[in-house]
Design a binder for these strands. Structure first.
Lengths: 244, 244
DNA sequence: TGTCACCAGATCGTATATCATTTCAGATAT
DNA sequence: ATATCTGAAATGATATACGATCTGGTGACA
């Protein structure tokens, strides 16, 4: 019992959870990927019971769907689902940002600006992957001092949903990244100026809403251009989207 | 296989989930109540595996705490937790109300008013249980047409957390119920007048925030009056609160 | 050729048994 | 009297085994 941790021995359920979760997050398990209990259990060298538990938890979070005697698969994000998640994110992110703002120090704002500058420099690279990562980093700094863990939890939930369409069907709306960087700078300035919480909240909310609008407009025009009337008429079709 | 439903045979996990959940909701399992797997399994005449799964789901929802090799218990709501949940509720309820408002018909508003009138009539009875139930009903009508199911889900999560202190440590802040009924009426009028979404959102948010303020003020004054400095100094002490 | 019955494989669902950890009471030593 | 040790009981965690259900395909039959 010498070189043994006293507390944190990870249970096999948690192990399975992290295993699956990591693969969903980094895109190895794309939406629609089928999760077979026995198979994952063998990969992890555990029994199916902990794997099942992990999958049920992921189901509760909305990351996978699970049907009795049929199986589980990574959840497919539909257009309506995307819209709702973005809408929800705009609200909770707005709240998180404004609640965090009063506690942000000049050092926080410096870090935020530094990250945003890196985003600006990647604009020419057209690297959605990296841009999204930096975007998360930027907003994480702004949320850092939010005193309400519940709100932060909701923000993270929303991000997780969004992450699912990261590698699988990501689309970069032309011009949106540039606008996003500009809005980031204005948001930092607003916080710096000691603006009223409500003003900050609405600015942050608007920032997310603008992305949603841009994606929807892009989707609409793209559909029209290609003339995919069938896809346009199907409210359940999978979506190509952005989350910056 | 004649008189058998084709789809909806409830799994034992779901059965266990509903069993426990119902008892938490109606107060038979008060916060702190210990949930022993084997015991619940025997009561339901199932094995411990589905019970365990149910408890893990409840843990994910924050309704119970679960520690490895120790066990589960109904979550205790602390003062900070209460504050955070109410704050979150004020935000998501505000959003849900304003998003629902444009779709509310005169019939909706009539029903809302009718429920609120029943609340008014119970003011003299001092029946917190009934008042809270009507309060939920009232707001449910206003949320009814919210087109974003995510937001509604968040509202319900918040309500579930609040429900936990319903019977256990419920306190009716003097005068708050009366104010609440008045605010309800004003909220309905605001919606009826076709006010801007943001205006409705802030009014709904304020309604919830006012309750929180009332509770905190009442708590503070009560503590001072009784002179429980020890309890006041402990940020983790259990809370007596209201959710109307 | 279309439809239906049926079978085989895949997969989930749960019970049971066993292992691991925690807790607590009682004993023992200081 | 206090602290520490010890072992049994309680409890959770997981593996294994078996049963139930769904799915897809195959072939008989009209």
């Amino acid at each position: 019992m010498s070189a043994e941790r006293m507390h944190p021995i990870e249970s096999k359920s948690q192990q399975a959870y992290r295993f699956i979760r990591a693969r969903i997050d980094d895109g190895r398990y794309v939406p629609g990927f089928r999760l077979v209990l026995g198979q994952i259990a063998r990969e992890l060298d555990v029994s199916v019971v902990p794997v099942r538990e992990a999958i049920r938890l992921l189901e509760a979070e909305g990351l996978v769907t699970f049907e009795r005697n049929v199986g589980a698969q990574v959840a497919l994000i539909k257009e309506a689902e995307y819209l709702h998640t973005m809408q929800t994110l705009s609200i909770v992110e707005g709240a998180a940002t404004s609640m965090s703002a009063p506690y942000l120090t000049p050092e926080h704002l410096r870090r935020a600006r530094e990250i945003n500058e890196r985003m600006r420099r990647t604009l020419a690279d057209f690297d959605p992957h990296r841009f999204t990562a930096l975007n998360l980093e930027f907003h994480s700094v702004l949320f850092e001092e939010c005193p309400n863990p519940h709100i932060l939890d909701l923000v993270h939930r929303g991000w997780n949903r969004m992450k699912m369409l990261r590698d699988s069907s990501f689309s970069f709306v032309p011009g949106r990244a540039h606008d996003s960087v500009e809005e980031h700078e204005r948001l930092v300035e607003l916080i710096e100026s000691g603006a009223a919480p409500l003003e900050i909240e609405l600015a942050a909310r608007q920032h997310r809403a603008a992305t949603l609008d841009a994606v929807l407009a892009y989707q609409a025009s793209h559909k029209l251009a290609v003339g995919q009337s069938a896809a346009a008429a199907d409210p359940d079709h999978a979506l190509t989207a952005s989350n910056d």
